[in-house]
């Protein structure tokens, strides 16, 4: 039984449609059930999509088409791939449930989708920009309604860039070494604790 038919059997109408493109199985799902479906795909025997390869989004040039959030899953044990898509109406709120609780790696992936497309992830612990700087005010660059050169003049962009404080990034908190400190190996912890960054904990 393929993942598509298994999903149909388990979730019924929450599975909007499925297709095979270039040999890859793609499943469109309802936004409100997406988190349950992804959890089911991860935990159910026979599916075991335990690795989240990527989260991204697509904004099509056709204004009628919805924006899609794409989850690329892989089962490391079964060596199988699955693409799950959520179609979001651009007139409604661009909001989906975070899958950070299922895959910790979703943290930065969801931040990138938020930064580039403006999709908010409900339940994400730290949803802020990741590629553009925190004070970036021009919008979400990968949206099709975003002009290639940005909204502001080059002079304004240059002024804002020069006003940025680079030291605000790359702190020990930014790298979350402080949070992961307890999980690091003993020798790394010893070196970090007496490193030039100072005592962490």
């Amino acid at each position: 039984m393929t993942a598509a038919t298994a999903l149909q059997a388990a979730f019924g109408s929450a599975i909007v449609r499925s297709a095979v493109s270039c040999g890859d199985l793609i499943v469109w799902v309802e936004r409100d059930r997406a988190h349950d479906i992804l959890a089911w795909l991860r935990d159910t025997a026979g599916q075991e999509y335990n690795y989240l390869t990527d989260i991204t989004a697509v904004d099509y040039r056709d204004p009628e088409r919805p924006l899609e959030v794409v989850y690329q899953l892989r089962s490391l044990a079964r060596k199988a791939d699955l693409r799950v898509k959520i179609a979001l109406d651009k007139l409604g709120p661009l909001e989906v449930e975070s899958v950070y609780d299922l895959w910790k790696g979703a943290d930065w992936l969801e931040r990138e989708v938020f930064d580039m497309f403006g999709v908010t992830f409900r339940g994400h612990p730290d949803l802020r920009r990741i590629l553009m700087w925190d004070t970036y005010a021009e919008g979400h660059p990968l949206r099709k309604d975003f002009p290639l050169r940005g909204h502001f003049t080059r002079a304004e962009q240059t002024r804002q860039a020069l006003a940025a404080n680079p030291e605000a990034h790359y702190s020990i908190e930014e790298l979350t070494i402080a949070e992961a400190f307890g999980e690091l190996p003993e020798d790394v912890r010893r070196r970090l604790a007496h490193g030039e960054r100072g005592r962490v904990k």
């Binding site: 003049t153 080059r154 002079a155 304004e156 002024r159």
Partner: peptide, 20 residues
Amino acid sequence: EVDARGFYLPPEKIDVLSEP
């Protein structure tokens, strides 16, 4: 140095230099 407005060159000049 960058002036009080935050520019190293006058903004008009930056716009002209950055023209496509």
